[in-house]
Design a protein around this nucleic acid. Structure first.
Lengths: 166, 166
DNA sequence: TACGTTTCGTATGTATGCTGTCAATCTTCT
DNA sequence: AGAAGATTGACAGCATACATACGAAACGTA
């Protein structure tokens, strides 16, 4: 590859200099795009989840476990539709949950294509252990907003989602 | 263990039964969590991006390309800080951009550890080609919001991000 | 100037996410 | 019933994401 001149731009570690505290970065067009804000918020949400909940269960695994617990007997495709994941992704998620002994795959008597999903007792215990921490992470995520803003934020999120998914 | 995942491309399977149009799914606790809404919005944003821009360039690659174009000579760690990605992830992204001939890696005369990054002419052309479609996708993402709501949404996003990253 | 600490880019491993394809199976239309 | 179409789950493949660790190189301090 070609040799390039050093532009002299400051070099810093990503965890040290978030762009939201760096005025010199504010001219990057990216920082005016709602998609960029949403992506950063998603990163923050996952980080808070991991901090609160710990390494025992991932956000995706928690979502799947909670959904199966509320809808026992659902298939993988139904679960994917329920929590908004891809069918191909869910397979691996269930694999890992099954490996931990938290979810059991079973055959359906109605439809032999379907893997009937159910939460085990261990899975229910893990869910109960994680849920308070999950709620704490959700609370911390919107901690900077007051009550009115939280309501407005949720309303606008749902409005956009209904527009695109509904 | 890491668990951050931004989507890559449009979803299809779950698109058939969006939970936001399914009243029977509204009792799933997940659907009241801001983290869940943000994740779904991120999926929508990626899907709109891919629809508008096409398979030529991914959201991450666009972000990297745009940032390098505005800050020529930046290193990989600096780029990661600029657009909010992980240092380890950026390596692969730059690999693919370099393979397409859109970005060139060079050695710094100041600091021999640094890979100085620069956008090639082809890269600039690709950036110019993609940018209108990217802006269109951003516009469509918030299409359901009126002018006041858009301003409020951006303000709240920045408020939360500043709280967690600033 | 010797040395401990940081930072840079890279490699590895795990976990998402989505596309596309396939075989098995269910449903619908003829 | 039989053919056509749709659905389910598995699998391969690509592209994120991040933690950890490593060697090379730069930096701070004694």
């Amino acid at each position: 590859m070609s040799r390039l001149k050093d532009g002299g731009a400051p070099q810093r570690a990503s965890h040290e200099t978030p762009d939201y505290a760096d005025t010199a970065a504010s001219d990057v067009a990216l920082h005016r795009m709602p998609g960029h804000h949403i992506r950063r918020l998603q990163q923050v949400a996952v980080r808070l989840f991991c901090e609160s909940v710990g390494p025992e269960i991932t956000p995706v695994q928690y979502a799947a476990l909670a959904a199966i617990a509320q809808r026992p007997g659902v298939g993988q495709a139904g679960l994917a539709a329920l929590i908004g994941y891809d069918r191909a992704t869910i397979g691996g998620v269930i694999d890992r949950l099954e490996q931990k002994g938290w979810v059991a795959r079973g055959a359906s008597t109605e439809d032999r294509r379907i893997n009937v999903l159910a939460v085990t007792d261990d899975g229910r215990a893990a869910l109960a252990r994680a849920t308070p921490a999950v709620k704490d992470a959700q609370e911390r995520l919107i901690a900077a907003l007051d009550a009115d803003e939280r309501a407005a934020f949720e309303r606008m999120c749902l409005k956009m989602l209904a527009h695109h998914l509904g």
